[in-house]
Amino acid sequence: MDSSASRSSGNETENAILNSKTESCCGQFQNGSNPWMARYLYALMFLVCNILAWVARDYGHGALKEMQRLEGCRGAQDCLGAEGVLRVSLGCFTFYFTMFLSTVRTSKLQEPRNVWHSGWWSVKTVLLITLIIVPFLVPSAFIQLYGEVAHFGAGVFLLVQLISIISFIMWLNGCCQSDKDPGKCHIQAILLAATAYVVCIVGIVLMYIWYAPERSCLLNIFFITWTLVLLQLMTSVSLHPKVNAGFLIPGLMGLYVVFICWCALRSEPAGESCNRKAEASHSTDWLTIISFIVAILAIVIATFSTGIDSQCFQFRKTQVRAAGDVPYGYGFFHFVFATGAMYFGMLFIGWNSHYPIKKWTIDVGWTSTWVRIVNEWVAVCVFVWMLVAPVVWKSRQAS
C-alpha cells in the first residue's frame, strides 16, 4: 500500500510539473513547485545581484550617510567601490552555496528538497536580502580574504563554462554524424565550418587593425598571432588520420578562441596607445552604456546556460532520465551560480580590488587581459586533449 501510494504521488507530481510547462508564466509562478520556472527566477535573482553590485560600485556614494553607521564600513570607505562589489558578491555567493548544500543529490521529484528548490520564493527572497545585507557588517579584512578566494572560484566558473561549450560543440558534431540523411547534413556542416573559418580570419584581421596599429604593439601582435597559430593547431589535430574529427568542431572552437582573444584585447586599459577602440570610447556615451548592459546580460545568460548543462560532466552519456527524475541537476545548477557570483565580482573590479574602475565599464585592466589570454590557452589545451584522449585510450587498451 505504501509503495503504491508513493508511486502514485510521484506520478501526480511529475504530471503536474509537465502540465505546468504549458501554462503561462504567472500560472507557473502561482503553482509554487515548478523546477522549469524556478530556473528563470534564480536567474532573475542573479541579475538583481549584478545590478546591486554595479550600483554599489558606481552610484553608492549617495548612501554615504547611512553607511557611516555600519561598523564594518569604517566611515563608508570600505562599503563602496571594489569592496562594495565584493560584499554584494559574497552575499550572492552565500545564497547560492546554501541552495547548493540543501539541494545537492536531489534525484526524484517527490523529494521534499524538490519543493524547496522549486518553491518557497517568499522565504528565499528574504534569505537573499538578508545574506546581501550581512556582508556590509563584516570587517574589511574578511572581505579582502573573500576577494582572494573569489579569484579561484571565478576560475572554476570559467573552466566549467569552457567544458560546457566544448561538450556542446562535440554534441553538435555527433548529431551531424548520426543524422538520418548524412549527405544533406554533410553539406550543412561544410557550409557552417566554412562560415566559421571566414569569421575567424575576418576577426583576426580586424584585431590587427584595431589593437596592433603600430609595430611597437608587440604584446598585442603576439596575442593575435598566437591565436592564429592555435587555430591552425586545432585544425591540424582534428584532421589527423587517427583523430579524423573534420573541419566543423575546430571551426566552431576557433570562433570561441577568437572571441576570447578579442575580449582580452578589449580589456586593456584605455590609456594604452595600442588600444584605439578604448581611446575612441574614452567618454561615456550611449554605445558604452549599451555595451555595459549587454555585458551584464551575457554574464547572466552564460551562468544560466552553463548551470542547466550538468550532463556535460556525466561519465555515462547514455544514461536516460527515468520517470520521476528531476529535469536537471539542482546541486550543479546552484554550484554554477555560486561560482558565477564570484565571477561577476571579479569582472566588476577588473580582477584587482586596487585598480580604479571607470563608470559603465566592466572587465577592464591588465589583470583581466591576462585572465582572458590564459583562459584562451587553457581552452585550446582542453579541446585538443578531448580530441586526442580517445586515441590514447584505444592505444593503451590495444597494448
Rank of each mutant, 00 (worst) to 15 (best):
G119K: 03
G174M: 01
G84T: 02
L162Q: 05
F152K: 12
R69V: 09
L137H: 12
L80V: 10
L192F: 11
C92E: 11
K65N: 09
F97A: 15
V104H: 05
S118T: 14
P112W: 04
H117V: 04
S122E: 06
T130P: 06
V126C: 14
H151R: 13
H117A: 15
P139W: 00
E111A: 13
S167W: 06
L101Q: 05
P139I: 00
Y197C: 01
I163V: 15
F100W: 13
K124S: 00
V138A: 08
S140K: 07
M67K: 10
T130R: 07
V160R: 04
F142G: 00
I132L: 14
I143C: 01
L80C: 03
G153E: 10
F100T: 13
F152M: 12
R74G: 07
V138M: 10
G84I: 01
D78F: 08
F97M: 14
Q177G: 13
A154V: 11
D78V: 00
F97T: 13
S164N: 14
W116R: 12
V160Q: 04
F168P: 08
G147K: 00
V85G: 06
D181M: 07
C175M: 14
S140A: 12
L127F: 11
C176W: 05
G81C: 05
T125N: 08
W120V: 02
G119L: 06
A154C: 12
G183Q: 09
A141T: 06
F97I: 15
H186V: 09
V199I: 07
R87T: 08
L145S: 10
A196Q: 04
Q177L: 15
A150S: 07
L90P: 11
K65C: 10
F168G: 14
R113D: 03
W120G: 04
W121L: 09
L86R: 10
Y146V: 14
G147E: 01
I187W: 08
L127S: 11
V104G: 01
